[in-house]
């Protein structure tokens, strides 16, 4: 069996169309919404915890929370801006619970551990180190902006901080990356 179960079908409706349909009890619309965002949720939860079991538990609880919002759910922004705080809260709570006896940074997004990787591309490890050198707040806005594709106002929304703070963090993070020997190559345009 393939380790990755593909979406059984793609639904032409946009997220708002699916949400409207789910509010009317359309189960197929929920299935389409689930398959549209399943991998994003798992990937984010794993990024936050580096733990497969927690990522899958978070996937389950995230979509349990999503379906509990129906009927009556209104999508006022991108669905990922709704999902991000939910996934972050659930994933970090689970990681804290699983690591009660360890001292962990409970808010920093993690990046995959490449220390034991046999990946011959050492650039990945160097990029991971450059990211790790950023503070947790700066790293988070970099990942939200350049991995998840959020705009400044969307980052402000999901982190519940002012847009000016997001810009400041982005500025400091990018400046640090520009001065890092590994990541300065991205700034030569």
């Amino acid at each position: 069996m393939s380790p990755h179960s593909p979406a059984p079908h793609s639904d032409p409706r946009d997220d708002n169309g699916l949400v409207d349909a789910i509010n009317r009890g359309d189960i197929e619309a929920f299935n389409a919404l689930y398959y549209r965002y399943r991998d994003w949720v798992v990937n984010l939860a794993h990024r936050l915890t580096n733990d497969r079991e927690i990522a899958l538990d978070t996937l389950q609880e995230t979509f349990a929370y999503v379906h509990s919002k129906f009927p009556g759910f209104e999508l006022r922004a991108k669905f990922t801006t709704f999902l991000y705080p939910v996934v972050k809260h659930l994933a970090i709570a689970k990681r804290k619970k699983a690591s009660r006896h360890q001292s962990l940074d409970d808010t920093a997004p993690d990046i995959p551990d490449h220390s034991s990787s046999t990946d011959p591309d050492s650039q990945r490890e160097q990029l991971a180190q450059a990211l790790t050198s950023l503070s947790k707040d700066h790293r988070e806005v970099i990942l939200l902006r350049f991995v998840d594709g959020f705009k400044v106002d969307e980052i402000a929304s999901v982190l519940k901080i002012p847009s000016g703070t997001v810009k400041s963090r982005l500025h400091h993070a990018l400046n640090q990356l520009r001065n890092d020997p590994v990541t300065k190559k991205y700034f030569n345009r």
Binding site: P3, H4, S5, I111, V147
Partner: peptide
């Protein structure tokens, strides 16, 4: 380029079983 490299770096390769 930065987005592409960060996406590769943070891709979990964790898939939800059926």
């Amino acid at each position: 380029s930065l987005s592409a490299d960060l996406a590769k770096l943070t891709q979990s390769h964790i898939f939800a079983p059926p």
